[in-house]
Design a protein around this nucleic acid. Structure first.
Lengths: 225, 225
DNA sequence: ATAGTAATGAACTTATTGGTTCAACAAAAT
DNA sequence: ATTTTGTTGAACCAATAAGTTCATTACTAT
């Protein structure tokens, strides 16, 4: 590794002379932090993963704590963006409400179950005590935006007379809770994967009870699938 | 501190000659692990918290990893017992179903929001990568038992014609998801407390949508509270 | 009383790691 | 060609912590 001349030798991004080593460092830092945890992740390890020398890290991002914060913030931004894109699939003019909710639920669940997303939540939980500001940095804004987006969509549906609800943000919270709660409870916290059919089933079951509680149309009688 | 003769000098439990230093160590270990995280919690710190000398820890529980596992398992057992007691409040002969669900929901939420419970989940999330067996040790059995207990109660209710559901374990998962999901999303992960009125509101709102989806009686029309 | 057992404190070893310094170096700009 | 800037490798320092050893001390059972 090191001052590579070839396109992508080992780490992934290390080519462009000296620009944007920073991004490579940030990415590698998140990877290593996710794999090792904050305390166990050594700067040497991160440097190796990034294909970069140790002093370079201290040049761009002074100190481990700063590096951690920036890496977490970057990962959180990525994750939030993906999730917001998933939410945008829920349009008010969907022909079949059930199908629409299963679809967006499935997409949300894919985001939720991605390796990055698990790692982000794990690190957030793990280090929230020593880094209380982490909550404002990633824990609040990300889910906050998502909740807002979901609430917006639900409000539109309610206004169109297709949903019967009074508080869209509460209903939104409950939909994602219905979606992610069972997954979080069963799935060994991202250690072992939650496969496609399980996610589909989870999205379906969450949709069924959500629409039973809030749907304007009677939907299916009882039996599901 | 140390070989105390008085009842409770500093740590809390250190009186009885040499018996049950072990328990004191386990308790102190969980406290310190919860406060500092695994890596940052030094054996010296745990020894100090327990009012016990360092070699004593190595006598009773060889090594940090072993100590961690045992401390986590003990804390998990305590937590599960409390939660199961809370679930037992949901009887099939409740006069008002809404009230009964709010009540048990409230109790479950109290368990979920206790400092120990937050700490347990935090440590579990944090160290699941380096201690994969932790999931079988605390993550699986605890919630598994709880889910089973809730499913049992729901099945009784359904059999009595007061609930309309096909899969009691799924419904149980969804009830606790409805209950804890919004709390987990908003509450800064146990850093700042979730006060009584908020918990009451959360239990109420979870109950309303759950009964809207699964209740046999029409319950309230729309507006909640 | 006495012997045996468990706990204690303190020093010690060893290993890791965050953070720094510095001379050499390669590419970019002039 | 030369200066400048960011990068590199390697060595170094100080701090922290896991784990161990051991002589000493205090209970407890006989």
């Amino acid at each position: 590794m090191g001052r590579a001349k070839v396109a992508d030798a080992a780490g992934g991004a290390s080519v462009r002379g000296r620009i944007d080593k920073r991004q490579a460092i940030l990415d590698a830092a998140f990877v290593v932090f996710a794999r090792e945890g904050y305390a166990q992740a050594s700067i040497d390890l991160i440097a190796a993963e990034a294909g970069v020398a140790k002093p370079t890290i201290y040049n761009h991002l002074a100190g481990k704590e700063n590096l951690f914060r920036h890496a977490m913030a970057a990962a959180a931004d990525r994750s939030t963006a993906r999730t917001l894109a998933a939410v945008s699939r829920l349009t008010a003019d969907a022909p079949d409400l059930h199908l629409a909710f299963v679809d967006v639920g499935r997409a949300l669940l894919d985001c939720y179950c991605s390796a990055d997303s698990w790692a982000l939540r794990r690190l957030l939980h793990a280090e929230i005590v020593r880094f209380p500001d982490l909550f404002d940095l990633v824990g609040a804004s990300g889910p906050g935006q998502v909740a807002q987006a979901v609430a917006d969509r639900l409000a539109r549906l309610a206004l169109a007379g297709r949903l019967r609800l009074t508080d869209p943000v509460e209903a939104g919270e409950q939909f994602v809770a219905l979606l992610t709660g069972p997954v979080a409870g069963r799935s060994a916290l991202g250690t072992l994967p939650f496969d496609d059919v399980q996610r589909q089933a989870a999205a379906h079951s969450a949709t069924v009870t959500f629409l039973r509680a809030f749907g304007a149309e009677p939907s299916e009688p009882v039996g599901g699938a």
